[in-house]
Design a binder for these strands. Structure first.
Length: 337
DNA sequence: ATTTGTGTTGAC
DNA sequence: TCAACACAAATG
């Protein structure tokens, strides 16, 4: 008889009694075991069942008490990301870990909106911390707070580059090619004027920057040239670039209004330009709202520092992330801002 | 007493 | 890699 009782208990009926209350509210009936994932996600599990309900989210596993665990596998090993009240919280935790562990192409549960500067901050934050640090934050449910804290710090600490000790460009498992095959040099940015976004279909490039970064052969100055610029989502924009002798200014003309329209540029917004550092020398264009985070401002400031050799901007997760090259003595050292 | 999250297994 | 499951370690 003892044997029978043990068999019954191991199947879960005893322990289930204490927690089925909450779970029974959330779930309903049980399905056949075979098919699983998709169907279970919408249907749920029977009230009295000893079976735990599968989550519809990747990396999310049910807990006996009705809560949800999050886990991710890395190097043949499970990494526990903590437990959460809500299934979606666990899913989000997995997503964050996936982005940190596997890069921007990682499959995630939630469809994250690609908001330019907000994402840049978060991705920069993610890669400025070790996997362990991110996991700790997730397990302690402090990730969001830490992230907000860091955004404040980034804006508040402009010149100081002490904040992050870990150099993600040096020790991160993110593949080097993934980072450097898209390395870009930050050139400059302009706060667009009302007429830059008006009906004139032109953007005035500040003379100094224009002559430095977009040199225009005098023979083609009036006629202009066509320049290609790739934006943060990989779309290529073609603008006519020429010199207007009447106003003695360099301008992007044909094609510009289309960019203004699609990006919904408003006066006061910032447009930035980058150039790939490889042999190809492609141009890139970016923009951010008037009150966006001040990465570009940081770059402009830190670039004027004597020890700064160059500012590298790399594209990661579809956004631009920058890196400083400086020469303390003779050797190169890479650092975070 | 409860909850976490690890040990383990088998499917993909 | 991944999640299902059982249960020991951890926690209150």
């Amino acid at each position: 008889m003892a044997m029978i009782c043990l068999d019954e208990s191991t199947s879960g009926s005893i322990t289930s009694s204490s927690f089925t209350v909450k779970r029974s509210m959330e779930n309903s009936c049980q399905m056949g075991s075979g098919s699983s994932a998709k169907s279970n996600s919408e249907i749920g599990i029977e009230a009295d069942s000893k079976k735990l309900p599968s989550s519809k989210y990747k990396g999310v596993v049910p807990q006996p008490n009705g809560r949800w665990g999050a886990q991710i596998y890395d190097k043949h090993q499970r990494v526990w990301l903590g437990t959460f009240d809500e299934e979606e919280q666990a899913a989000k935790a997995y997503d964050i870990a996936a982005l940190r562990f596997r890069g921007h192409n990682a499959i995630t549960n939630l469809q994250h909106t690609l908001e330019p500067h907000k994402d840049a901050n978060e991705l920069y934050f993610l890669n400025s911390h070790s996997k362990d640090e991110i996991v700790d934050m997730l397990r302690k449910h402090s990730y969001t707070h830490e992230l907000e804290q860091s955004e404040y710090n980034i804006c508040a600490s402009h010149g100081t580059r002490k904040r992050h000790r870990d150099n993600w460009l040096m020790d991160t498992p993110v593949s080097e090619s993934e980072l450097f095959d898209v390395a870009k040099e930050y050139l400059f940015e302009k706060v667009v004027t009302p007429s830059d976004v008006g009906k004139l279909n032109r953007l005035v490039i500040p003379k100094q920057q224009a002559e430095k970064y977009f040199p225009l052969p005098t023979e083609s100055a009036a006629k202009g040239v066509l320049l290609n610029f790739e934006d943060s989502i990989g779309k290529v924009w073609r603008f006519r670039y020429c010199y207007w002798s009447s106003s003695q200014s360099y301008v992007l003309t044909k094609g510009w209004s289309k960019f203004v329209k699609e990006k919904n540029l408003k006066a006061g917004d910032r447009v930035s330009f980058q150039r790939s550092m490889g042999p190809d020398k492609k141009f890139f264009i970016g923009w951010r709202p008037r009150n966006g985070s001040s990465f570009a401002e940081v770059l402009d400031k830190v670039k004027s520092s004597a020890t700064i050799q160059a500012v590298k901007v790399v594209r990661l997760f579809g956004v631009n992330i920058f890196n400083i090259l400086e020469t303390p003595t003779s050797s190169f050292v890479t650092n975070n801002i």
